[in-house]
Design a protein around this nucleic acid. Structure first.
Ligand SMILES: NC(=O)c1ccc[n+]([C@@H]2O[C@H](COP(=O)([O-])OP(=O)(O)OC[C@H]3O[C@@H](n4cnc5c(N)ncnc54)[C@H](O)[C@@H]3O)[C@@H](O)[C@H]2O)c1
Ligand SMILES: NC(=O)c1ccc[n+]([C@@H]2O[C@H](COP(=O)([O-])OP(=O)(O)OC[C@H]3O[C@@H](n4cnc5c(N)ncnc54)[C@H](O)[C@@H]3O)[C@@H](O)[C@H]2O)c1
Lengths: 215, 215
DNA sequence: AGATGTTTGTGAACGTGAGAAGAAGGATCG
DNA sequence: CGATCCTTCTTCTCACGTTCACAAACATCT
């Protein structure tokens, strides 16, 4: 019995909404107040029909003959994505990648402040990284609760990834982004997404080969 | 008129082959010589029917009643993916992310050695990062040619991404991995893939919200 | 106020990929 | 040597997403 039920958003649409959001924020900072599906498609790198179909799923927020109101649309997309308020993030593993992520300012400004940083190495624990003190891995649950973290990032070696995921879930985190290669399994109630850079390079190498073959 | 034509590999299959490859390499290092689709599916995190369908596209390399020969399959997947020989990579932008990537040893051991590192900041040029000297951005073409780089990684701020992509293409690179947010357009002859971490977080936040709504 | 042009919203066709089921080939055991 | 079991390979069906086409709504110009 939800009141403002967002009917059912296809996964492909969910993946595009953040791209629209970024384009809209850019437009807004340029002082643009109204945007057509054609314009938004141009800045998002997709075609206009797709934009319209995606936006129509959120509701009929456009004015025919005019377009969409930028500020209003930003609010609606944020609402649907669950990014109305800042979402706090905890990073596990303060190595090369974990530090790079922590130092990156784009997450905080995009509504995803890094609030916790934990590691298992005694040499790293206690270090200050991007204004955050690295806490021991054992304190994960405490760190999560104190900072109300709802998203977790795994930036540890692959060998530790599964146990880190288990501990994140144990700490009350149900949304995980994993950078470690290899298989990590989680209960159905948990959303785990994987950023697999090695796979990305392989896919590029495949297309590179296809290109060379057609010459 | 290709001799050993690989008929036509669906994009979805191309994206899974690297995952199989990683699993197979792990199995091989454990001394496993033969693997069934069921076993491979388990380590890859997909279902067995999918594995069989993917592998059957490469050719009928399995023995019914037995399974697939691990070493042979590794070679075939590498061949199809174009990863038989090492593929050299150049990184543009030696900031937080560029350094983390350069220091990461998993790329080189996976067949993608980082061979070049360029930046535009005078303070960073000349620095040694992971055994590589950071060269000026203007020397990009030289760096690419001297090291026979075929893959390029963009790790610069978003504002510079488009011009970096243009210069990479100018230097003879047709396969690009972009970490910068925002739109980058390239000719059709170029393959550009994007790693969009902000989008990943947004997608996780969406599912997190869905979860909270059903409570 | 009417005509015209613009832009959204949606229904239908098309293509791709996933899953299920059955046929075929090979091994193993009696 | 024959029967049974196992696993690959292939075909079919269904769901999803994208693209195309068109109608409805709004603004603007005369
Ligand atoms: N650095 C990259 O550019 C890059 C690229 C692709 C993939 N990855 C993957 O990301 C992960 C991290 O890479 P990295 O380069 O930062 O590695 P790293 O070795 O620099 O850092 C890993 C950190 O995790 C910590 N750690 C180890 N086990 C832990 C545990 N059980 N709990 C908490 N912390 C633990 C270590 O102390 C270390 O500080 C790896 O799985 C790697 O394969 C990294
Ligand atoms: N660091 C992260 O974890 C992270 C996460 C998500 C996205 N990103 C994106 O990755 C990119 C890099 O992030 P970062 O944290 O490494 O930034 P950074 O500022 O630390 O590094 C950027 C580097 O690029 C160099 N540079 C700028 N313009 C250049 C040009 N025209 N040619 C060559 N080099 C140039 C700068 O000198 C700097 O060294 C950014 O677009 C960022 O949005 C980073």
């Amino acid at each position: 019995m939800d009141e403002v039920s967002t009917p059912l958003v296809p996964e492909a649409t969910v993946a595009r909404l953040p791209v629209y959001l970024r384009g809209l924020v850019d437009l807004a900072s340029d002082g643009v107040e109204t945007v057509s599906s054609e314009q938004l498609a141009a800045v998002a790198g997709v075609n206009a029909e797709n934009v319209r179909k995606d936006l129509s799923i959120l509701g009929s927020y456009g004015k025919r003959g005019v377009g969409y109101e930028v500020d209003f649309l930003i609010e609606q997309i944020k609402r649907v994505l669950g990014a109305g308020d800042p979402v706090s993030v905890v990073i596990v593993g303060a190595g090369n990648l974990g530090r790079a992520l922590a130092y990156y300012g784009g997450f905080a400004s995009g509504g995803f402040p890094i609030k916790g940083l934990v590691d298992s190495s005694p040499e790293i624990i206690g270090q200050e990284v991007a204004g955050i003190t690295v806490e021991p891995f054992e304190e994960l649950k405490d760190v999560v609760q104190k900072n109300s973290c709802t998203l977790g990032i795994i930036a540890t070696p692959a060998a530790a990834a599964q146990s880190v995921a288990d501990q994140l879930i144990n700490a009350g985190i149900y949304s995980i982004l994993n950078f470690a290669p290899g298989l990590v399994t989680v209960p159905e109630s948990v959303t785990l997404r994987k950023v697999d850079l090695a796979t990305e390079l392989h896919i590029l190498a495949f297309h590179e080969q296809q290109r060379e073959r057609n010459e």
